[in-house]
């Protein structure tokens, strides 16, 4: 059986990327994979609904990290989608027989080993299958502390979950990685990508503008939706920000960890400062989430209110604008 280096991580996609690269002999941390893949983002899309609530996302679209990493010089990745369930499972078995660990996109709802409280219809969960024993697959799910097992029928269902972001049996594996990675240019490229998303998008629902837009809308929720619905919307925003797979603070802490690691790798004190400022931004996000949770629980303190949360979000936007402007300046000075 395949010896797969399972390392627990905070976010599924960057965790899978890091584990797959490490398996190929290129040891890389999760935060580094997240940063190289340009994983950080902000978007508020009220026209896309999840369980009837508007989509708020703190990270790049599903698959973005892997796509960015696959585009690195010397890395080749095979990616396949399927129409037919049996074909998809046969292809997976074939790859496993050739002892290739395979990454899969799955729907969380159908995975029996997931904690009950997290089984929502969320279809962009990534995991690695590294073996099969009888009718069970051996799975390295990056958010779990140890490898887990999953029956074949459940895995087949999870791979063909329907709804938003349907995985359509997507599987991928690395065929080639360079012997060593020159981190520097890729770090710069990854940061450049995130800065562009956060600062320079013409679309007002994305990046720093998106945070301000959310703040404006959030302030109107109690009048527009009524107190009960407003609290539900608020809880949804906090769940997207803090629930499993985010590393806390809406991925801000993970990205700060990446900046810190890059600062050490490149001997660059400016990145270290940016990491500290981003941590402060993450703490402000948490301040917002804590206040929101108190309101959702009807245990608000006298100072907790929707206007106070709007102010908090605007503070987040200002802090992030500052961090990413500084980072953008830095990338412009790089060769």
């Amino acid at each position: 059986m395949l010896d797969f280096p399972h390392t627990q991580s905070a976010h599924c996609e960057s965790g899978v990327a890091a584990n797959l690269l490490t398996h190929q002999g290129l040891t890389i941390s999760e935060a580094m994979a997240f940063g190289l893949g340009g994983g950080l983002f902000f978007g508020y899309f009220p026209f896309i609904r999840i369980n009837g609530l508007p989509l708020v996302t703190y990270r790049a679209a599903a698959g973005n990290i892997l796509r960015q990493i696959a585009s690195i010089d010397g890395v080749s990745m095979v990616e396949k989608k399927f129409r037919n369930q049996d074909e998809a499972m046969a292809e997976l078995d074939q790859a496993l027989a050739a002892s290739i660990p395979v990454g899969l996109q799955t729907g969380v709802f159908w995975l029996p080993y997931f904690p009950k409280a997290l089984r929502f219809h969320f279809n962009a969960h990534n995991l690695v299958v590294y073996g099969k024993e009888g009718n069970e697959y051996l799975i390295s799910d990056p958010v779990f502390p140890t490898p887990v097992r999953c029956p074949a029928t459940d895995l087949a269902r999870a791979r063909f979950a329907s709804g938003a972001l349907a995985p359509k049996g997507k599987m991928y594996y690395l065929t080639r990685v360079p012997a060593e990675l020159k981190l520097k240019p890729h770090i710069v490229q990854g940061i450049r990508f995130v800065c562009k998303m956060m600062l320079a998008s013409p679309f007002p629902l994305i990046g720093v503008k998106g945070i301000r837009f959310l703040a404006k809308r959030l302030g109107k929720w109690p009048q527009r939706l009524g107190p009960e619905q407003a609290d539900l919307h608020l809880g949804h925003v906090v769940r997207m920000q803090e629930e499993i797979g985010t590393g806390g603070g809406g991925f801000r802490f993970m990205y700060a960890a990446f900046l810190q690691e890059s600062a050490a790798a490149m001997q660059e004190p400016r990145l270290q400062e940016c990491a500290a400022s981003l941590t402060a931004a993450g703490d402000t996000w948490r301040e917002f989430a804590a206040m929101a949770a108190r309101l959702c629980k009807k245990r608000g303190r006298p100072e907790d209110s929707y206007p106070a949360m709007v102010a908090c979000l605007n503070r987040c936007a200002a802090m992030e604008e500052k961090v990413f402007t500084e980072l953008r300046q830095w990338t412009r000075q790089q060769p």
């Binding site: 409280a117 502390p145 590393g247 806390g248």
Partner: peptide, 10 residues
């Protein structure tokens, strides 16, 4: 939330 599962965060 996690059924006693230990998750990691930064």
């Amino acid at each position: 939330v996690t059924d006693g599962l230990k998750i990691v965060s930064y």
